[in-house]
């Protein structure tokens, strides 16, 4: 089963993003063809002898030479990953999964709502829409982080903001001294975000609770359920629909998702112990 066999990638760069998150930039050892993917897709990352987990790709989809993953050290595998350094080798299977609807969104305003590490799977969308800027209307990123120190990709966000053709609004749940930005949960940014609700595609990634309340706010603004996209997370062992772990009602999150329109999963979303 070819899709079950990892291939080797070497770490070109290890970037500590925040206290508990990091980015690795990888290059294929076995192939010169580079790595092509679509925003929102994920890879299964194998740490030799330790285990394998799904992690979304956080890099630029137009740069196939480098494969980028950003994650947070929370489990056995990611904690092991956090110890990696330049030159180390990991196994990669992928890319898997249904991407964000960047093509369907052409001609629309784009609202990206991210919470915490949820910005990582959405960063490829930002790259994509900024590289294809003329195809989209207004682009708005609403980002909620725990504290100012937990803001992911901070320098890059500042760089994006300096382009002036993207609105980036950041808020933190807990301020620290010296923070002059917004304080409050990310959902509070939605009522006044500058987008045209009848012509907007929203893409949300964050903890499920945050996504639930974000959807409520977006619907209040007049967005259609088919215009709101979320990315789901469940236990995954294979990434290709064989292990059964990621089933979510009729859906296999690995292959039918992880990105779904809210309309598609409204009947499942928020159901307990599903």
């Amino acid at each position: 089963m070819q899709a079950m066999i990892p291939s080797s990638y070497r770490i070109q760069k290890f970037i500590k993003e925040t206290q508990d998150t990091f980015t690795i930039e990888l290059k294929s050892i076995e192939s010169k063809n580079g790595f092509t993917f679509e925003p929102g897709q994920f890879n299964m990352i194998y740490i030799y002898g330790i285990g394998e987990i799904p992690i979304s790709i956080s890099g630029d989809p137009n740069k196939s030479g480098i494969l980028t993953h950003t994650t947070r050290a929370v489990g056995i595998v990611t904690k092991e990953m956090a110890k990696l350094k330049k030159g180390d080798i990991v196994g990669i299977r992928g890319p898997f999964g249904r991407p964000w609807p960047v093509r369907e969104a052409v001609g629309n305003d784009i609202v990206i709502v991210a919470g915490g590490i949820g910005l990582a799977p959405l960063r490829p969308v930002i790259y994509h829409v900024l590289e294809n800027r003329e195809y989209y209307g207004r682009i708005i990123l609403l980002y909620g982080a725990r504290t100012p120190q937990d803001i992911l990709f901070r320098k890059e966000l500042e760089k994006f903001r300096s382009r002036l053709d993207i609105d980036i609004i950041v808020t933190v749940d807990r301020a620290i001294k010296g923070w002059t930005g917004n304080v409050g949960v990310v959902t509070t940014l939605i009522p006044r975000a500058p987008f045209d609700p009848i012509n907007t595609i929203a893409m949300i990634c964050g903890p499920e609770i945050m996504m639930r309340y974000t959807i409520i706010e977006l619907i209040k603004r007049g967005l259609g359920k088919d215009k709101i996209y979320v990315t789901m997370e469940r236990n995954m062992k294979c990434g290709i629909g064989f292990c059964g772990h990621c089933q979510y009602g009729t859906e296999f999150i690995c292959k039918d998702g992880p990105v779904f329109s809210y309309k598609e999963i409204e009947h499942l979303f928020g159901k307990r112990e599903l």
Binding site: Y48, G49, I50, K237
Partner: peptide
């Protein structure tokens, strides 16, 4: 048909299997 995947190594991490 559900399955899980497990990774093993020998003590010295010379060889592994899934």
């Amino acid at each position: 048909f559900c399955m899980t995947v497990e990774d093993y190594t020998d003590l010295e991490r010379n060889s592994a299997e899934r």
